[in-house]
Nucleic acid binder design. Sequence first.
DNA 1: TCAAAAGTGTTGTACATACACCCATGT
DNA 2: ACATGGGTGTATGTACAACACTTTTGA
Lengths: 215, 215
Amino acid sequence: MRDDRNYWNKLEVLINVIKVENGHLFILLFKKRTEPYKGYWMLPSSLLFTDETIEHCTLDTMINMVGYDHKEFYHVNVYSDKIKSPVERVIGCSSIALLDENKAKKERKKIAGFESEWFPISDLPKMVGNQKEMVVDAINYLRNCLNINKVLKILYPQYVTLKELQTLYEELYEQKLDRRNFRKKMLGSKIIEKTEQKRVKSNGRPASYYKIIVE
Amino acid sequence: MRDDRNYWNKLEVLINVIKVENGHLFILLFKKRTEPYKGYWMLPSSLLFTDETIEHCTLDTMINMVGYDHKEFYHVNVYSDKIKSPVERVIGCSSIALLDENKAKKERKKIAGFESEWFPISDLPKMVGNQKEMVVDAINYLRNCLNINKVLKILYPQYVTLKELQTLYEELYEQKLDRRNFRKKMLGSKIIEKTEQKRVKSNGRPASYYKIIVE
DNA sequence: TCAAAAGTGTTGTACATACACCCATGT
DNA sequence: ACATGGGTGTATGTACAACACTTTTGA
């Protein structure tokens, strides 16, 4: 039992909380108020208790630190090489939480003592340790490993305009698309369906809302 | 420092060592010789030392337990919920090692005391704990997350026949393909290039060898 | 000369691209 | 009436699917 000590390690879970707004992706970061890295931004995270599952710890962090009632997470990667704290090595276990549009707009409970802000994924602030690399990994995971249709269904549980979808595709895959061809492709692929509702605000002609139909 | 104890956890790395033979994928497993799960098969694995990186531990396991000089690994997932040992929870950190065809044929040093065998990925034996699920996850990762062209380049560093490639595609994506269309697509996609060499053995007409050209 | 596997060509269809004009609304 | 963004159609090219016959080898 004594030489078990050689195998003790600390872990923390880190969450890439991601929302969409007008087709643009944003990530929720917290400002660090103590040294080291005072003033830098960081992912929401918690240390993993002995015998606790990573899933449990992630959920707990989401509720108690981030303030969303959200249960679906996607594991991205594990980081054991970079040293965040000068005292000891902590293994980082990073995941993605994809918020649906309505949840992101309304439901968050702000937690006292944590200054937080949404950042566009294309314009991240200075971040603690190797966490910027973690965010890049998470976005790549979103892009390459997750099924785009399911992602859309999660982000837009009710309805969405074609403009928003196109912006999202363009941002995610980093290429401009022709509006007319994009529309044809989306409608032809049977993953969206026109509704009778229309967007109310808007400058020019009101856009129709479409429903995402997957599975 | 004392209450740090609440955060101590044990980790083990596990490796899905995968090779290809005649277009079919195989995984290397070891037979467990002690209870619990005596006689069941398991992934090569080691406990992670304090402060050791996962990458280092994985490499070490590859050399000392598996017997290949192999350096490229792809992280798949982390498992903290299932209990493999009745005594305490160990967090499993699983990765893939894709062996190139020649290495898999020749270079392995057998390690004393470990009975091992290659199993087709479609026909796994009874396995320790939740490890069969880990293998399924790894194959899905190979299928969905890794770039197929790079995978081919790794598996076949020198040359390959179109038949082998087609078998591999069919096994990985679980669908039959038309031989003529497959050939046209591969040759048109510029990822392979005909060589002057031909396969020597073979029953019927000898197949040309093709070189995989990526990047 | 036969069996076994490799190699080749044509045609129709579906999908992607490129591009220009009309429509519904708020100001 | 005009500015703003939404919505539509057509022509062309490219990629893929379906399909049957010929070639090269070993036995």
